[in-house]
């Protein structure tokens, strides 16, 4: 067959072969890239539908419920009749504490925490959690709208990132507010020379809230990080293939 074809010269034939190879590679490259882009976009969207809204709503509701129903502090102290312990709730703090010494301790500034803080702190923290619920709801709504409207994946990522940034900040705000109770330990140790008795104080709810706040901020940050890594790998994979393709062509493979 080759002998029948009127081949002009050797270089011409080589050029033709190279063009054919190149076009074949290009076709393959394009189809593969299209497929991978589609897959990665789907993955990205799947990850983003990744329940961040639901997670924020659920964790906030659970935290608010626990905050108002769960015990905040466990205090063990030495009374006249022996050691006594008390669980203090935010709503019933005034009726829960029977010991005068503890009331005096919490009334003064020795620990940096007053009786009023146990009532005010849940209110401040709940504002943060309500903000998280609102963010979660907005994000959930955005996801629902996206299902019908189908925003471009890049727009979706940036909006998700912005929501994640806000939720991260709110999470840190909750942690910092709750740190007041953890800081009271340090202040207690610093002012211990002023205190006559040594109660054992364990903050239950503040620790749980700090854990929740940490989870919120961690999850939000990880979402930003995941999207960043996805976008980076997407970009670099395309650039890498591009460069490989380029090099292979230049080598005349």
């Amino acid at each position: 067959m080759e002998s029948k074809l009127p081949v002009d010269n050797k270089s011409d034939e080589l050029i033709k072969q190279k063009i054919l190879e190149e076009s074949f590679r290009k076709a393959n490259f394009k189809t593969e890239n299209d497929k991978k882009n589609k897959k990665s976009e789907e993955k990205l969207k799947k990850r983003s539908t990744s329940k961040i809204g639901i997670f924020l709503i659920v964790i906030s509701i659970v935290s608010i419920i626990l905050m108002y129903l769960g015990p905040w502090v466990f205090i063990q102290y030495n009374a006249d009749y022996g050691s006594d312990s008390v669980l203090i709730f935010s709503n019933t703090i005034n009726s829960d504490i029977n010991s005068k010494d503890i009331i005096d301790l919490l009334s003064t500034n020795y620990m940096g925490v007053s009786l009023g803080d146990f009532q005010n702190a849940p209110y401040q923290i709940s504002i943060g959690f309500f903000a998280l619920i609102i963010i979660g709801l907005i994000f959930f709504m955005f996801q629902v709208i996206d299902k019908f409207k189908k925003f471009p994946s890049e727009t979706f990522i940036i909006i998700t990132n912005l929501f994640a940034v806000i939720s991260f900040m709110v999470g840190i705000y909750i942690i910092v507010i709750t740190m007041k109770f953890i800081g009271s330990y340090f202040l207690f140790l610093q002012n211990i020379h002023l205190i006559d008795f040594y109660p054992i104080i364990v903050y239950i709810m503040p620790f749980l809230i700090i854990i929740n706040g940490f989870l919120v901020s961690k999850y939000s940050y990880s979402i930003i990080k995941i999207y960043y890594n996805q976008l980076k790998s997407k970009k670099h994979s395309s650039e890498g293939k591009y460069s490989f393709f380029k090099s292979s062509i230049s080598e005349g493979r």
Binding site: E154, I157, I158, N161, V165, M169, I224, Y228, L231
Partner: peptide, 26 residues
């Protein structure tokens, strides 16, 4: 400090959007 945290997080969003190649202005 809160402001610096917010700025750096926006910077993170910025680098993500820079990778998108679509929202160069943002």
């Amino acid at each position: 400090i809160w402001a610096s945290l917010a700025f750096i997080l926006l910077g993170f969003v910025g680098i993500s959007s820079y990778l998108c190649d679509r929202f160069q202005k943002i």
